[in-house]
Simulated scan of single mutants.
Amino acid sequence: MPHHQKHHYQVDCAKAHKGLFTGIFLMVICIISLILFFVFIKKDQFRNLAVLQAHIVELFIYCINAIACLIAKHHYQVDCAKAHKGLFTGIFLMVICIISLILFFVFIKKDQFRNLAVLQAHIVELFIYCINAIACLIAFFQVRELNYNRRRGVELDNILLIIAQSGLCIFTMFSIIGAQFISQLQNTRLVLINAFACLIQSMLQSVFILDASKRKASTADQVRRKPGREMVTFLLVCNFSMWAINTLETRRAESNPVQMSFYGFWAWTIITHVSTPLTIFYRFHSTVCLCEIWKGTYKIKSEYL
């Protein structure tokens, strides 16, 4: 008789992944609500806000739970094969972004921690841009085996993507110029590196979206393996996170002290009001385009059967 025996436990998770992902998303919302509650409840001026957001989150969860109970008898099918790793990694990165945003809004109001708030925000942004750029390169090489339709012309989504990227390029170029000519402030080099990383990441992502939007699976083996879908899923969630950062953090003047010091308050306000809406739209539209790639690229067309 062997002294040690290996035990195998199997859990049937079929038809459970969508509920699991949605439950994890709601759990993340609850964790953020708890963090905000414990941060703000100790401050008299924010005590009512802490209680209010806690009640709103509770009401939202109760409503979602009630809706889930009502539609439980209806079945909707979404093919999520070859996407779970990218989704989990993207959710992990989204949690990092949310924590960074919370720290930013907590520290930016205190003069002694203002530089720390900007520093951690730039570090998190740089990390996300680098990870996203690497994911774009990996996804680009993975989808190359799919059939490329040269006859497919430029569509409206592609034009909107390029127009929106022009706003992001304007923002990053002005950031690079401002950081290049100011060296006496803190985080100047980090702002310069961050702007370059953002520019490179957006270009790689746009090239990938323009290329992948014209590709289709042509064999049953490609439909089964779904090359690049993990990376597409990851990029989709990442762009949603970057959209949140651009919407809540980048547009604030306090998050760009280097640029504001170089251009002045009113000049930088004009620059951000022109470029930031396009930057926000670029992240949102990239998410939509990636969703279309995720949904349609890996469905085999009848002409290849």
Results as ranks from 00 to 15, higher is better:
residue 211 D to E: 15
residue 161 L to V: 04
residue 276 T to M: 15
residue 275 S to E: 14
residue 55 H to G: 09
residue 53 Q to Y: 10
residue 246 N to H: 15
residue 152 R to A: 04
residue 219 T to D: 07
residue 77 Q to R: 10
residue 123 I to H: 01
residue 149 N to K: 11
residue 195 A to Y: 13
residue 95 V to A: 08
residue 162 I to D: 13
residue 112 Q to I: 08
residue 4 H to I: 13
residue 40 F to Q: 10
residue 12 D to F: 01
residue 209 I to P: 01
residue 267 A to M: 15
residue 203 M to Y: 11
residue 273 H to V: 03
residue 168 L to E: 11
residue 247 T to Y: 15
residue 270 I to L: 15
residue 212 A to D: 04
residue 105 F to Q: 06
residue 213 S to D: 12
residue 223 V to F: 03
residue 187 N to I: 15
residue 282 Y to E: 10
residue 74 H to F: 10
residue 13 C to S: 03
residue 40 F to T: 03
residue 214 K to L: 02
residue 168 L to Y: 08
residue 95 V to E: 07
residue 170 I to Q: 13
residue 189 R to A: 06
residue 35 I to C: 05
residue 294 W to Q: 01
residue 264 G to H: 04
residue 142 Q to S: 09
residue 183 S to G: 09
residue 14 A to V: 06
residue 156 L to C: 02
residue 210 L to A: 04
residue 248 L to T: 13
residue 208 F to V: 01
residue 234 F to H: 01
residue 26 L to G: 06
residue 101 L to Q: 12
residue 281 F to C: 03
residue 194 N to F: 05
residue 78 V to E: 13
residue 156 L to D: 07
residue 200 I to Q: 03
residue 284 F to P: 00
residue 296 G to S: 12
residue 50 A to V: 05
residue 222 Q to S: 04
residue 243 W to N: 04
residue 179 A to C: 12
residue 285 H to S: 02
residue 70 L to R: 12
residue 68 A to N: 15
residue 77 Q to K: 14
residue 10 Q to H: 14
residue 82 K to R: 14
residue 195 A to L: 00
residue 35 I to H: 03
residue 169 C to L: 15
residue 82 K to E: 15
residue 198 C to A: 15
residue 83 A to R: 09
residue 232 V to D: 05
residue 54 A to Y: 12
residue 91 I to C: 01
residue 49 L to P: 00
residue 290 L to Q: 04
residue 226 K to R: 12
residue 99 I to D: 02
residue 207 V to F: 12
residue 228 G to A: 00
residue 56 I to H: 02
residue 77 Q to M: 03
residue 215 R to N: 02
residue 175 S to M: 13
residue 268 W to M: 11
residue 155 E to C: 04
residue 211 D to G: 03
residue 124 V to L: 07
residue 21 F to L: 14
residue 228 G to P: 04
residue 32 I to Q: 07
residue 304 Y to P: 00
residue 255 S to F: 15
residue 293 I to V: 08
residue 73 K to F: 12
residue 105 F to R: 03
residue 266 W to P: 00
residue 85 K to V: 09
residue 131 I to C: 06
residue 24 I to H: 04
residue 116 L to D: 05
residue 193 I to L: 13
residue 92 F to E: 08
residue 64 I to H: 07
residue 109 K to A: 10
residue 166 S to H: 05
residue 265 F to M: 10
residue 270 I to P: 01
residue 210 L to W: 07
residue 154 V to D: 10
residue 19 G to R: 05
residue 298 Y to T: 00
